[in-house]
Design a protein around this nucleic acid. Structure first.
Length: 318
DNA sequence: TGCCAGGCGGGGT
DNA sequence: ACCCCGCATGGC
């Protein structure tokens, strides 16, 4: 049994923003152990743990192993919450859209929360060939089963497993119900243990080049690569288009399935990836047939309260 | 019970 | 370039 790492506070501060809605940003696609409706934990580094406690009012405290941090930590916090991200063009493009128009105007304060490339890939793999709810349950199970914890001040906080954690205990992936995806997650973990991918070095590469690199990992295809590029790099050029979104696009814009990506990228340009992610939130990530009903009934913003959705997953999975 | 769900790779044409 | 199938698992 390893001694639990203790993180010490190093900086207090307040995020000042007019544009960003921290409640939405913390709530969307989150778990109850990282967000409780009032405050959340942001993991700036999931290997050498750096964790930030943030409240929806913007007050934050950064915690690190040494108790030392630099301005760079604040920059990284703001980056991971998209505080300085200018989505004016995205909102402008979306305002009249029959699918996302209402969402982009009512939820303009939402920003994706970033994660490490390692964890972004795990998130993507868990979405493969599974419903939203099944994929997020897999992730939840993974985090709970590996049970990696740090002490943040006086609070124990769960962290995602590291790549070595996964390589050293592959069986837990199966216990987490990931099925054949366990092999892919294991492959990804080995790549990171072998330092064959360096997130820092990849930042300056183009999304297409990053996509090709990621697709070199067995089990990582275009969808997973692109989703992870959105989450890890905040590069939104390439849309992760799956069966679900492809069908939705073909219905809404009345185009053949094979033209779905083309028309989506023509419409959203360098915001194509963000728009894809936004669509899942707007439609509560309902399975396809229900999503199409929602579109027909023009229910194009989150409405579900009693079942887990991207917006309220945190209320159900604690 | 059997079928399907935010994919993917391998094998066909 | 396509098309098609099997793949683990859990929910309905």
């Amino acid at each position: 049994m390893k001694l639990m790492n203790k993180l010490k506070p190093c900086i207090h501060g307040k995020i000042e923003t007019e544009e960003v809605d921290l409640y939405l940003t913390l709530a969307v696609y989150n778990f109850g152990f990282w967000f409780n409706g009032v405050k959340g934990f942001i993991i700036l580094d999931d290997i050498e743990p750096v964790v930030v406690e943030v409240s929806v009012s913007g007050e934050y405290t950064i915690y690190s192993l040494t108790g030392n941090c630099s301005k760079e930590h604040i920059t990284r916090l703001e980056w991971s919450l998209g505080i300085k991200e200018d989505l004016t063009m995205f909102h402008k493009l979306g305002i009249k859209d029959p699918l996302l128009g209402e969402f982009v105007s009512k939820y303009s304060g939402w920003r994706p929360r970033s994660s490490s490339l390692w964890w972004a890939l795990v998130i993507g793999v868990c979405q493969q060939n599974a419903s939203f709810i099944q994929g997020w349950r897999m992730l939840y199970n993974i985090i709970k089963l590996y049970n990696r914890r740090v002490l943040v001040g006086r609070t124990e906080v769960l962290l995602p497993p590291t790549p070595p954690d996964v390589v050293n205990n592959r069986a837990l992936l199966i216990n987490a119900g990931t099925g054949y995806r366990a092999n892919t997650i294991y492959n990804v973990a080995k790549i990171f243990v072998g330092k064959e991918l360096d997130q820092e070095a990849m930042v300056k590469l183009s999304p297409t080049v990053i996509e090709d690199k990621l697709k070199g990992i067995k089990g990582i295809g275009s969808y997973t690569a692109r989703l992870s590029i959105i989450l890890a790099f905040r590069k939104y050029d390439l849309p992760p288009i799956d069966r679900w979104l492809r069908k939705i696009i073909s219905i809404v814009y009345d185009v053949p399935l094979r033209d779905a990506e083309k028309i989506w990228r023509h419409k959203w340009d360098k915001w194509s990836g963000l728009a894809a992610l936004a669509t899942t939130i707007a439609l509560d990530a309902k399975p396809l047939s229900r999503a199409l009903e929602r579109i027909k009934n023009k229910q194009l913003v989150p409405i579900d309260k009693d079942k887990p959705t991207p917006l309220n997953l945190w209320k159900f999975y604690k």
